[in-house]
Design a binder for these strands. Structure first.
Lengths: 116, 116
DNA sequence: CTAACAGTTATAGCTAACTCTAAGTCAAGG
DNA sequence: CCTTGACTTAGAGTTAGCTATAACTGTTAG
């Protein structure tokens, strides 16, 4: 049923084992299963979660906030509104960021065109 | 001829005086004039330069690289090619970043739509 | 059986980019 | 003249996000 050791998971999501343990320790990735020897066994679902963590982080959300999102997530349905509000606010932030990036892109292109 | 004290410049470019001094100390902003009492007098041109530093930084260039760009900049014409190559490479990076942001935006929107 | 290996924890160390503190200087208003 | 306030410097401290080390444990191949 598709299990990953930490190094396999590491390769899969392109984060070092250090980072995976760090995320878990910081509470971003609770509930990772361990085998009888105490070794992490990442499941398909964990890989998905890490993928979304990377998405949030890649769009400028702090690990602290990602953790908060995760906390709401595991509380399920009853925190749906709060959780979705967070995502919607984040969506706005991403839209703004894309806008800013486009503005900066124009500035850089203008500088290139200046040829001075 | 439009001079700014550090606090005026700070307000103008939305960076703290600490940050402005820090950038200067790090060599990102050489040649800022000082008055007889040793106080910084930012000129319109300096404000422009800070604006471009913010653009580069805002698009993920490290202060170290921004400094390198600045060094090429003050060497003028003879370093034009190197400087422009740097900007073109950076342009590609920004384009890629915008693409990534759009991908992540879709992921967040999908999560919002999931309503679970 | 044992050596190598891949994992474990706790904790220390690192880098980037600020941010602040301390101690001092200078100019202007009362 | 004296205080106030905005500035100066050098250097210390902070935060986020890793990244590495040390000491150890369990699994596996020869």
């Amino acid at each position: 049923m598709s299990l990953y050791t930490i190094s396999q998971a590491s390769a899969e999501v392109d984060l070092t084992p250090y980072t995976l343990r760090y995320y878990e320790k910081e509470g971003l990735l609770p509930g990772v299963k361990k085998d009888s020897a105490g070794r992490r066994n990442y499941q398909a679902d964990d890989i998905q979660r890490i993928g979304f963590i990377k998405c949030l982080k890649g769009t400028g959300m702090s690990l602290k906030q990602i953790k908060e999102y995760g906390v709401l997530y595991v509380q399920g349905k009853k925190k749906f509104n709060e959780r979705n509000a967070m995502l919607q606010a984040h969506r706005e932030k991403i839209l703004l960021e894309i806008k800013t990036q486009k503005k900066y892109l124009k500035m850089v292109e203008a500088k290139i065109e200046m040829k001075i």
